[in-house]
Amino acid sequence: MAIQTETQDSPLTIAGKTFHNRFLLGTGKFRSKTELTESITASGAQIVTVALRRIDLERHEENIIEHIPKGVTLLVNTSGARNAKEALRIARLAKASGCGNWIKIEVINDSKYLLPDNYGTIKATEMLVAEGFIVMPYMYPDLYVARELVKAGAATVMPLGSLIGSHQGLKAKEFIKILINEIDVPIVVDAGIGRPSQAAEAMEMGADAVLVNTAVAAAGNPAQIAQAFSLATAAGRLAYLSKLPAIKSHANSSSPLTGFLFEE
């Protein structure tokens, strides 16, 4: 289902490719391939993330690519990489498959919180950009690091909202706002978005897109919640474009600061 909006919004543009849906879907943790396909279709997601794993030699499982509708852009994540070198190796494997060269860099050397290693991410971004990959780095919202990522050639910057799978929403809200203000490439809020309202919140404050995985895959009705997420993302975007009025402070009758300007 594609979200039709009549607004004057320019499309999301990443590496020269345009997308009208700002909701990105992760494909991990789905109970069945059918639920995955239905979720992609119901939400109209145009970019989905996938991972690379050793094939299961006993089970001969079907490749997930078969279940992703044609025309959807694949974003291969480097999950499993604990440093930049490993991320590069995974990226090269992905490229060899012929399934495009869009890579979501995940350099995580932390099995407790799954927090991204910002510095490994910068290194990985430099290495992958040098080899011609379209790089979308997943990172912890730090302005210096975001600037380095842009300098290194990242196509977007993907700050986490909160810990992966935590459904805590935008714990890092104020710091994501700083990135939105200061960084000129698209900001895709990734990780921790647990409810459609949180996706809307991210978009209302000016994020360019959101990526959700666990909240959809683990839901009772993934396709339905995926649709809700997509609608919420579009609603948040529309609200942002409408420029909500600022919250005004109350005026009072005396004018101690500027009264002198109006005295005769």
């Binding site: 992760g26 996938v50 991972a51 690379l52 794993r53 997930i64």
Partner: peptide, 10 residues
Amino acid sequence: LELVNFVGGG
């Protein structure tokens, strides 16, 4: 030998 393919991931 390493044989890898695509699986679901976030």
